[in-house]
Design a protein around this nucleic acid. Structure first.
Lengths: 155, 155
DNA sequence: CGCCATATTGCAACATGTCGCAAGTGCATG
DNA sequence: CATGCACTTGCGACATGTTGCAATATGGCG
């Protein structure tokens, strides 16, 4: 389990000093990690694990999936990205977020929208008050039917 | 994608007339489905797909996973159960629910709690108001840190 | 009761991750 | 620059699902 300790408004990821950050934690700088970081640094928004593996292979065809997933876990511990699970359960990584946000997924039309902090305040505050539970907004994914699909007769 | 058309307070599942319901939809009654339904009818609360496959094998050792998953999909369309994804992305099926509910999962200690409708009202209402989005409470899974873990120094 | 259309099954291949382990390598040190 | 610890990688096996296809079985009909 990769835990980031503090949730909250996001800082834009800074890929320039990853090497130092790794070293500061006693971790190592390797070609494989360099590849993934290169890919991540030019990625904005959401990507699935499979997509990242694919892009790494474009840079280095010898990329091994398990290495990518393990490195992603490390990056998450470093707070450089976060992940949640889409409506289908697949992993969804959030890179260089402008702000921490969750997702709204319509099970009828498949569209996904982002939920920003102020919009999610209701959930976050409510869980904090009733349970003292600190919601990880970046891991939040809500499924249901969007306005458009609710309006129509039936799926 | 299996869609249940109407979300809302749950009716307790009635396994006694599944056969008729299947027929009414032009679907068939098979030994494999009978096995799964037998298992489901004595299951309460949450189960993962793998657990259901396992239990079906206890009844019929010849059970094939893909058949179970496909039948679960059919049962979901019939409204007999619903599913969401745990914090790890695995499927989690909800059988014979006393009421539709979501889940709260602590990423530090791994504990899971249920969120009942009234507690989730804040989320549901808020999304309905701001977006006209009908949240599927039974598919809702929120991750974060529970009160206990937040209190402690760090994971 | 036998026929037939088509819903289902079984199986194998694939997709997306996770895990254990032995071999390899980064890098702090001498 | 050589050495060595322990962090990483590569790889294969496994876990959990999904999907295409050919073979099979259900159930309405004559």
């Amino acid at each position: 389990m990769s835990s980031n300790g503090s949730f909250g408004p996001a800082r834009a990821a800074d890929w320039s000093n990853v090497r130092e950050r790794l070293r500061a934690s006693g971790l190592r700088w390797t070609p494989q990690r360099r590849t993934l970081i290169e890919v991540l640094s030019r990625t904005n928004g959401h990507v699935t694990g499979a997509e990242l593996v694919e892009r790494c292979r474009e840079v280095d065809p010898g990329t091994i999936p398990s290495t990518v997933y393990r490195t992603l876990d490390v990056m998450e511990d470093l707070g450089l990205l976060s992940h949640s699970h889409g409506a289908d359960g697949r992993e969804e990584f959030h890179v260089q977020p402008v702000a921490a946000h969750g997702h709204l997924h319509c099970t009828s039309c498949g569209t996904t929208w982002e939920i920003l902090a102020d919009e999610a305040a209701a959930v976050v505050d409510s869980m904090q008050r009733s349970r003292g539970f600190a919601v990880d907004l970046s891991h939040l994914s809500i499924a249901g039917q969007c306005a458009g699909c609710s309006a129509k007769p039936a799926g």
